[in-house]
Amino acid sequence: MSGNRFRSVGVAIALVLLATLPLWVGNSYYINVASQILLFAVFALALNVLVGYAGLVSLGHAGLFAIAGYAAALMLQAGYGHLAADTAAVVITLAASAIFAVLALRSTGIGFLMITLALGQIIWGIAYRWASLTNGDNGINVATRPAPFGINLTGAPGFYFATLLVFLLALASMAVFVRSPFGASLRGTRDQPLRMNALGYNVWLIRFFAVLFSGFWTAVSGLLFIYYNQFISPQVAALTTSAEILLMVISGGTATLLGPVVGAAIVVVMKNVVSAYIERWNLVLGVIFVLIISFMPDGLVPGSVRLWRWGWQTVRARLDGWISSPVEEHGR
C-alpha cells in the first residue's frame, strides 16, 4: 500500500510541475518544446495501443495523422468553424482507420506491418501528388487557432495548457483502457490469439476496435499538430514520421503507460537539439534505431535501468576489490 501512496505522490508532483510549467520555464521557446512533447506523446500513446497492447506494428500511422490534419485544414480553408472542422476530421480519420483495419487485419505480424506501410504511402502520395486538393508540396496554412469557451490559445502558454489538458485526457483514457476487461482481452489476443479464439473471443473484432481507438487519439494528436504549426505539408505523412513515432514507442518501452510519453520527450528534445547543430536528423534517427535495437531491445527506460545496474555493479565490484571492508555488509 505504501507503494500506491508513493505513486500517488509522484503523480501529484508531476501534475503540479506540468500545470505550472509555463511559470517556471518562462521562455516561450521551451514552452513550445513542451507542447510538442505533449502532442507527440498523445500520438505515441495512440500507436502504443497497437504496438504495445495488440502486438500489431503499424508503419502507416503518419497517414492517419495526416488525414486528420488535412481534413481539418481543408475545412478551415473552406470557411467552416473549428468545431465543425475538428469533428469532421475525427470522423473522417475514424473512417480511414476502419478501412486501414479491414485491409491490414487480413494479416498479422509482418503482413500487417507491410500493408500499413503501403497504406501510409498512399496517403503520402495523395498529399504530395494530388496538388489540386492538397496544394502539394506547398502545403496548407491554418490561419487561426480555436478559442474554446473564449480562451485564447494564440500564445505559447495558452496553447500549452490546452495541449496538456488533451494529453491528460488521453493518458487517463489509456490508464482506464489498460485495466479494463477490453484491455485484458486485447493483450490476450497479442499473446495467444488462437487460445483467445477458443475461449470465445472474436479476435478480429477486438483488433478492429483497437485500431479505431488508436485512430481516434491519432486524429486528436493530428489536430493538435496542425494547430501548433498552423501549417501542414506532405512531409507529415512521410514514412519518417511513422518511424519517429514508432521510435518514441519503442525507446520508452512498449506496453507501458508512461513509456511512450518518455519516448516522446526523448525524441522531441533530441530532434530540437540535433536540428540546432546539424542538418542530419535522419542520420541520427537511423543510428539511434540501430543502437537501441542492438543494445537495448527492451526499450530505453528498461534498458537504461539494466545498463545502469550493470555499470553500478561493475563499479561496486571494483570498489569492493580495493576496499575489502565491512562497509559491504552494511550496504546490503
Partner: peptide
C-alpha cells in the same frame, strides 16, 4: 488467476467493456 479470469470473461459481454477496472 488472470488466466482463469480471461477464460470466464470470454463468455461474458463484459469482455467488450473498456471503461471498468477488471480487478
Amino acid at each position: 488467476l488472470r488466466n482463469v479470469t480471461l477464460a470466464l470473461l470470454g463468455l461474458l459481454p463484459l469482455r467488450w467493456n473498456p471503461l471498468v477496472d477488471l480487478d
